[in-house]
Simulated assay, not measured.
Amino acid sequence: MPSISLTAHQAVTSWFEENFRSRGELGASVSIWQHGVEVLSLSHGWCDRQCTRPWDAETLAPVFSATKAPAALCCLMALEEANLPLDCPVAEVWPEFVGGGKSTMHFAHLLSHTAGLCALDERVPIFNYEEVIAALEKQVPLWEPGTRQGYHARTFGFLMDEVVRRITGVDSLGEYFRETLGSPLGLDFWIGLPSAQWERVSPMYPGKLSIANSDQPFLKAFNTSGSLTQRTFTSPLGVNAVSEYNQSSFWSHGYASMGGVGSARGLGKFYAMLAQGGTWNGVRYVSESILRQFSHTLSQEDDSVLITPIAFAAGVMQDPLDPDPRTDGGKMRQHYGPSLTAYGHPGAGGCLAFADPENGISLAYVMNQMEVGALPGPKVLGMVESLYGM
């Protein structure tokens, strides 16, 4: 793809502005990069419904599950540092993990959400890291690893965090991220936000459930008592109301599944580095081997938790391909643009960030007025479509 055209710039800007007029946007930013340069930065709106605090490009917001991609990269970098392949048993670095019959579970199972550890039988509080890890060590997989896919909405971050701690000896995955990527690259993104940044964070506002949304299979499963979906999003227990995500204690804790806080520019720059081959200003931060793992599909199934087809590479999502042999195997949807090598991760409420290495593009969108659902909605998908002229 040649340089992003003026027409694409105008189309993205038009959609972004229309979000505020007709799609309920309150405060939001989008940051688009190509070949290591930010080519479009848009910010508008308010941090509060009383319209007393303007939203700008420096505003930070919780990005929920968009945290998973940086967390997965930390895990992959730690594994590479220890010269451990994805098909190596997790117990190689975490001996206690063998509990519950998990001695042969591989790192690939964790990274592809096929481990069967999405919901815990033991009711442990999310804020007690040691108790959650002990519960994961004892947990019997809900299915034979690798035979089924179910999004590990909360446990994923604890699994990544413990692997990084075991291999590198750091106190937390968030600390490792800051030391290896966040600080060297000057990323306006944290997994464990320092108090000096708290005043920059916008509060989040919950989405409203519409009649149309209530028909979606995911939301039905999410609201069905005892369903795998509901169990997954409440394992470990705690931090369910949006108001709890607006507390500094949540921002500072560093939950590697859903606790990242940053600006659109910070997330966009992270993916821009990946989109241009893992290098920045002539310095290599991510190896070509890891980049290949981000574009190589490990699992694609009707996800048992999200109740829709999802494709996973090593800790990042891809657009699923149509399995119908009568088709050309094209994408079933284009959340990450038209390229088959693109990857990224959404966050609850509508946040989205991705890399398109084929075209050297990255895009990140953060906002404070959430939508209902686990996957991106029209506010950001319209901008993706506008960017690529789809």
Rank of each mutant, 00 (worst) to 15 (best):
L136K: 07
Y271R: 04
L237Q: 14
L136T: 04
A66S: 15
S248D: 11
L76E: 02
S339F: 00
P376V: 14
P378V: 11
A256I: 03
W280E: 08
A119Q: 00
G268E: 10
A313C: 03
R123T: 10
T168S: 10
E244M: 04
N281K: 15
M367Q: 15
H44D: 13
V39E: 03
G329D: 08
S172K: 04
H35G: 01
F127R: 12
R326T: 11
P320V: 06
I211P: 13
E179K: 13
P141V: 09
I167S: 05
A311D: 01
D324F: 02
F107W: 10
N19T: 07
Y388M: 07
P95K: 07
G174R: 08
S339T: 08
H9T: 00
A364N: 01
H335S: 14
G45M: 08
M258H: 15
A348D: 01
P346M: 12
R21M: 12
K331F: 01
K208R: 11
S14R: 07
V316D: 03
T13I: 01
M273R: 03
I167D: 00
L173I: 06
E288V: 02
E81P: 01
S202E: 05
G347K: 13
L173P: 02
S210D: 08
G99A: 12
D328L: 12
W280S: 12
A61P: 00
P70A: 05
W94Y: 06
Q139C: 04
D215H: 15
L381M: 15
E301V: 00
G382F: 07
I126A: 14
T104D: 13
